[in-house]
Write a protein that binds this DNA or RNA. Structure first.
Lengths: 345, 345
DNA sequence: CTGTTAGCGCTTTCAA
DNA sequence: TTGAAAGCGCTAACAG
C-alpha cells in the first residue's frame, strides 16, 4: 500500500506500466466482467494495484461506461425516525450491490424536491428512490414526473415509496388500510369520541391516514367532526402544538386522539403531560408508524407498525427487478395495541 | 424542457450546436466561473440548455476538473438519532455549497469503516466527514489514518467528528467534560451511589464519558465500582439489556444510574418500567446527548445536551476553512436537568 | 471574447 | 488473449 508520494493518485495507467501490461489488460483484470485474462498477467496487475494503492476513479468509470454506480435517495427529513429507518435499509442494501448512496433532503418542500431531482440528473444515477411524502399538487406532480422520466430515459430506475400516485414502480404503504384498522381496534376497545392531530392537508400521507381512520369509524357509524381535527406540522413539535390547540378548544367530548404519525403523537403526549392531562386515564392516544420511541414513552404508544427497514429493502428490490416500470409492492401495517389505549369501561 | 426523445441525454455538445456556439463558449456560459461571455451568446446558450433540458454530467465535470463535488459522510448508524441529527446538519449545509452528499454506514464495525473509507477513494471526494465513533485499536487507527491521508493527498479534506485521536481537522466533542459536569450536577442533587450502563469499552465515546463521570464523582470523593458498570451495545436495546442485568444484580445500593447515551438510557427506562421499578422514585437516571426523545419519555430525561445539528455544521465549516489539517473545534455539552433526577432528600 | 484542441481516467471496440 | 486507439462529456489552456 505504497501511496504515490506525489499529489496525484495512481491511475490505471500507472498500474499497467508497473505491471508491464497494456491499459486494456489492466482494466480487464481489475474490473472487466468476463474474465479473458491470462492468470499470470492478472495476478501481476492485482499485485501492482495493491502495491500502488490503486482505487479506480468512479467518475471516470461512469463516464466511460455511460452508467454510474450511484443510488440517490430522497427523503423529507433524515432526522425523522421514519425516514432514517428507511434510509438505513436502503443504504445497507445498496452497499451490498456495490452502489454508492447519495442523499437529498426535501424538508417537505415540494419545490425543493423538484430542484433536488433536477440536479440529480447530473449524477446520472442508476437508481433513484423517492421516499419523501407526495403532495396534493397536480402541477408539481406533473413536473416531478417529467424529471423522473428523464432520469429513467437515461437508464436510471425510479422507485417511489409512498402512496401510488406517480407512474413508476412503487413501494406503496397502505396508509388508508392501516388507519382504518386502527380505528376499528380503538372502537373495539370502547372509544367513541375521537379527535385527530394531522399534518398539513397537502401531504398525501396525512390525508390518507385521516381518511382511512374516518372510514374505520364510519363502519361503526361514528364520525370525526372537522372541528376536532387539528392540523400542524408533520413533526414532533407539530404534535406538541396541535395537542395544545386541542386542549384550548377543550377535550370534554373527546376520549381518544389519533395522531397521524408517531412523532406527532409523542409530541402531543408531552404537551398533554405538561398540561396535566392524564394519559391514558383522561385521554387515550394512538399514532402511526411504530417508530422505536413508541415503546419507550409512557404510556407506551398504540400505533400501526410499519416495517420501515423492510420498506427500504423492498424499494431496492424493486429497483433491481425486471418490471414494466409500474409495479407496485404494497406494505401493510399492523395495529399494535399498547398502554396508551387501554380497554375502556 | 423538451427532453431528447431518444435515450441519450443532451450533452454540452448538443447545447452548443443548438445555440450555434462553440463547446467552450457553451461550457463557459453554463458553468465557467469568471464570466467572459458575451451576453447575447450566454443567453442563447442558457436558452438552448433550458429547451433541451440539459443538466451537466457531474462525473464528466469531476474528471475534467480533476476534482469532484462530493462530500462523503460516514456514520455508525443512520437510524440512531445521534447520527441522523448530525447527518441532517451536514447534508443541509453541503447542499448549500453545491456538494452532493454520499453516505456510508459502518454499523460500528471498525473493519467495515476501513472498507468504506477505502472505496471512498474511488469517489475522489472533496470532503470526507468521519462521524462514526473511534475505537480503541491502534492498528486499525493506523490503517484508517493512512487511508484518510491518501484521500487528503488527492486534494480531499478530511474532518473527524469525535474525540481528538487522529491527525486531522476534528470537531471534538467534550465527552469527558460533559460527563464530569453531569456527575457534579447529580451529586449536587443529592445522589451518592451510582451505577453506569455503558457501551462496549472499545468505543472511545463510551470510555471517555465513563471516565469523565468518574472524574466528576471523584471530585466529591465518590467512586463508581467496576461491578456497578454494565456493558452492552451502544443502542436502545443495549440499554434495555444492561438495565436488566443491573436489576438482576440488585439495586439496593444504587440511587442513580448513568447511561452513557440517551438511547441506552431510554432503553433502560423501559426495562425498569417493565420490571416495576419506580423511576425516578426508586432510581434516578441520566443520559447523554439530549436526543429529541429525551424530552418525551416519562420522566423526562436528565442529560447532557449536545448541539448535534451544529456539530454537522461545524464539520462543514472546518472542511471549507483554511487549516493546517490539525485544527480542533471543541463542542461542549451542557447539563440539562429534568424530572428523571429530582432533588433528593 | 471566442473557438480549437488537447486531455481527465477509464472502457471498449477492433485488429493483431 | 492482448494491445492500440477511439471515444465518454466536460474543462482548460492556447491561439486567434
Amino acid at each position: 500500500m505504497n501511496e504515490t508520494i506525489h499529489g496525484m493518485p495512481p491511475t490505471l495507467h500507472d498500474v499497467a506500466r508497473e505491471a508491464g501490461v497494456s491499459l486494456a489488460t489492466a482494466s480487464r483484470s481489475l474490473n472487466g466482467s468476463t474474465r479473458k485474462v491470462n492468470e499470470t498477467y492478472r495476478a501481476r496487475v492485482l499485485e501492482a494495484a495493491e502495491r500502488l494503492g490503486y482505487v479506480a476513479n468512479l467518475s471516470a468509470q461512469s463516464i466511460a461506461k455511460g452508467t454510474s454506480s450511484t443510488l440517490a435517495l430522497i427523503v423529507s427529513d433524515i432526522a425523522d425516525p421514519y425516514f432514517s429507518s428507511i434510509a438505513s435499509g436502503v443504504v445497507r442494501d445498496a452497499e451490498q450491490l456495490g452502489l454508492v448512496s447519495t442523499i437529498g433532503i426535501t424538508q417537505r418542500d415540494a419545490k425543493r424536491e423538484l430542484d433536488i431531482v433536477r440536479t440529480l440528473r447530473g449524477q446520472r444515477p442508476r437508481v433513484v428512490i423517492v421516499a419523501g411524502s407526495r403532495f396534493v399538487d397536480a402541477e408539481l406532480d406533473e413536473q416531478l414526473t417529467r424529471e423522473l422520466e428523464a432520469i429513467r430515459n437515461l437508464g436510471g430506475r425510479v422507485v417511489m415509496v409512498s402512496q401510488r400516485s406517480l407512474p413508476f414502480d412503487t413501494v406503496q404503504i397502505d396508509n388508508h388500510g392501516g388507519a382504518r384498522d386502527l380505528a376499528l381496534a380503538l372502537v373495539e376497545r370502547g372509544y367513541r369520541s375521537f379527535a385527530a392531530l394531522t399534518g398539513v392537508s397537502s401531504l398525501m400521507t396525512a390525508r390518507d391516514r385521516l381518511a382511512g381512520f374516518r372510514a374505520g369509524l364510519a363502519e361503526h357509524g361514528l364520525e370525526l367532526a372537522e372541528e376536532r381535527v387539528f392540523e400542524s406540522d408533520f413533526t414532533r413539535d407539530g404534535g406538541y402544538d396541535a395537542g395544545g390547540r386541542m386542549l384550548e378548544r377543550g377535550i370534554d367530548d373527546i376520549d381518544c386522539v389519533f395522531a397521524v404519525n408517531d412523532v406527532m403523537a409523542v409530541g402531543a403526549m408531552s404537551r398533554l403531560r405538561e398540561e396535566g392531562v392524564d394519559v391514558p386515564g383522561r385521554l387515550a392516544i394512538a399514532g402511526f408508524d411504530d417508530i422505536a420511541t413508541a415503546r419507550d414513552v409512557t404510556p407506551a404508544l398504540t400505533t400501526v407498525r410499519l416495517p420501515l427497514e423492510q420498506v427500504g429493502a423492498a424499494a431496492i428490490e424493486l429497483a433491481t427487478a425486471e418490471t414494466d416500470g409500474h409495479a407496485i409492492v404494497t406494505i401493510s401495517g399492523e395495529v399494535v395495541v399498547r398502554e396508551s389505549t387501554p380497554q375502556r369501561g
